[in-house]
Computed example of a mutant assay.
Amino acid sequence: MAEKVGIIIVSHSFPIGQGIRALIDQVIDDVPLSLACGTEDNEIGTSIEKIQEAIEQAAGESGAIIFYDLGSAKMNAEMAMELLESSNIRIAEDIPVVEGSYIAAVESNLGKSVEEIISSLEKMKINM
């Protein structure tokens, strides 16, 4: 079976990330999913190091998609990607983190590529 696209959740809140994981785990259990939520001390905030670790855990040959909750989380995700020089990793820009990551996990489970999933998510864009 082909490797599946990984899902990475970047949130300022560790409990939010855990909740999203619990929701996805209710229907899918074999899609790579990693969390980069909260600071190193699990306080409110984000950590470039945690994002790098999450990318390394979830992004295999099929790539990964990063979902984020707030603008600074996106900025840190971009920096983490630059430091790792990651390829085939995309940030789901302006996509609701809960709904988007759930749909991406379902589509990854169906064997869709990063680009196919991003294309599907475009319909969900929110104006920020």
Rank of each mutant, 00 (worst) to 15 (best):
F14R: 13
V98S: 12
S47C: 09
K50H: 08
S47K: 11
I103N: 12
T39M: 04
R90D: 06
L83S: 09
K50L: 09
E49C: 00
G19P: 03
I91P: 00
A58M: 05
G63Q: 08
A36E: 05
A59Y: 05
E116S: 01
D69E: 08
G45Q: 01
V98M: 15
V10Y: 08
V98C: 05
M79L: 14
S62A: 15
I48S: 09
S34Q: 06
C37Y: 02
M75A: 15
L35R: 09
V114P: 01
E56L: 15
V98E: 06
S120I: 11
A64V: 04
E122R: 11
L121V: 02
L70D: 04
I126S: 08
I16V: 13
N127M: 12
G63D: 04
D41N: 15
S11V: 12
L110K: 05
G6H: 03
E43T: 10
S72F: 10
E115Y: 05
G60M: 13
I51V: 13
I66Q: 08
E53F: 08
F14H: 11
F14E: 06
A105H: 09
I8R: 02
D41G: 07
I51M: 00
I55N: 09
I117Q: 10
S108L: 11
S87Q: 13
A54W: 06
L35G: 08
L110G: 06
L35K: 11
S86H: 10
V97P: 10
A54T: 08
E107A: 03
E3G: 05
G38M: 01
E122K: 12
K4L: 10
A77E: 08
V31P: 02
N109D: 14
A80V: 04
L121S: 07
E40C: 02
I48A: 14
V31Q: 08
E78I: 14
I8D: 15
E43L: 15
D94E: 13
L70V: 15
I126H: 04
E99H: 07
E115R: 04
P15C: 02
G38Y: 03
I55A: 06
G111P: 01
S11G: 09
M1N: 07
L84T: 13
L23Q: 06
E93R: 12
V5C: 13
G45C: 05
V31H: 03
P32R: 02
K125R: 15
E53K: 15
I8T: 12
N127H: 11
N76H: 15
L110E: 10
E107I: 02
E3Y: 03
S72I: 11
V31F: 12
I28V: 04
S47E: 07
G100A: 13
A59Q: 07
I28M: 09
S119D: 11
Q18L: 15
V97Q: 15
S47R: 06
G38V: 01
L121H: 05
I44Q: 03
V5D: 12
G45H: 11
Y68T: 00
I95R: 03
S47Q: 03
I7H: 11
Q52R: 14
E49V: 05
A105Q: 04
E116D: 10
E40S: 10
I55T: 13
A54F: 06
Y102R: 06
Y102G: 09
